[in-house]
Design a binder for these strands. Structure first.
Length: 241
DNA sequence: TAGGCCATCTGGTCCT
DNA sequence: AGGACCAGATGGCCTA
């Protein structure tokens, strides 16, 4: 970081570095105590630095402390950022169909699955001829029509989700909210495309985990999938969307 | 023990 | 100057 090498800061003494020696070590005002300029300021930066305003010099100790404090703050920010991302990822997990006994999808699995799932749904909508379209995910059925969406399940876990009502149908927004998370008891009940599935326009569209469920389109035939190339296969892999 | 996954640290870049 | 974002490095944990 080039800024880390600034020996002087705007407005004088730096905030973060002002702790024990909150002031300013006068002894380091003398040029003879400064770290060689060549080391701290490459020629180009030195020239640029001359244009900047009047700044107060910092001792090497202060510079080090400043760097360390900035690093600590940056680490905190990064940690928080990653936690935020993980929270968002968790919400995404909860919005995807899953099995109760399933282990948690990994990060990459979640992202791939979500991508494929959304893509499949968009394909379903795109191929709509105006009538109601049904998407089966296991024993959960998502009916999409002009009057709204309805999610039904043959199991009691999901039942009929009615988030908003449009006409005679109970409708829910899609993707369904977390509390209406799909819960299917048996893997065998899931509809799969097997090798006839379609794949979204994504470079790494194949999913390598058996937990990647299929979205089945019973009313509209989807085009055959593009060939998979250069994708390693694991024993537990199977074709997904 | 190797490999996968993950959290965290780190330095670079870009933007405000 | 500082924050956001990113990608690489690293070490810990877990499982086959």
């Amino acid at each position: 970081m080039s800024s880390e090498y600034s020996f002087c800061s705007e407005g004088g003494f730096d905030e973060l570095s002002s702790s024990s020696d909150s002031g300013f070590d006068v002894s380091f005002e003398s040029p003879k105590h400064e770290v060689p300029t060549d080391t701290l300021f490459p020629p180009a930066k030195e020239e640029k630095r001359k244009k900047t305003r009047n700044t107060r010099c910092k001792s090497p100790t202060q510079v080090l402390r400043l760097k360390r404090n900035r690093r600590i703050k940056a680490n905190d920010r990064e940690r928080h950022r990653m936690h935020t991302l993980n929270d968002a990822l968790e919400r995404l997990r909860m919005a995807l169909p899953t099995f109760p006994e399933d282990t948690k999808l990994t990060k990459i699995e979640t992202l791939r699955f979500a991508h494929n799932y959304i893509w499949a749904l968009s394909q379903t909508l795109g191929n709509s001829d105006g009538g109601e379209i049904t998407v089966n995910v296991g024993n959960v059925t998502v009916s999409i029509s002009e009057n709204g969406n309805m999610i039904t399940s043959s199991t009691g876990s999901c039942a009929v989700a009615a988030q908003k009502r449009l006409g005679p149908q109970h409708t829910v927004g899609f993707p369904y909210p977390p509390q209406e998370r799909f819960v299917a008891p048996e893997w065998q009940e899931y509809d799969c495309y097997s090798d006839q599935s379609v794949s979204p326009p994504m470079q790494y569209q194949p999913c390598y985990d058996q937990r990647m469920y299929q979205v089945h389109r019973p009313q509209h035939q989807l085009p055959p999938p593009p060939p998979h190339h250069h994708m390693p296969h694991h024993n537990n892999m199977y074709q997904c969307l």
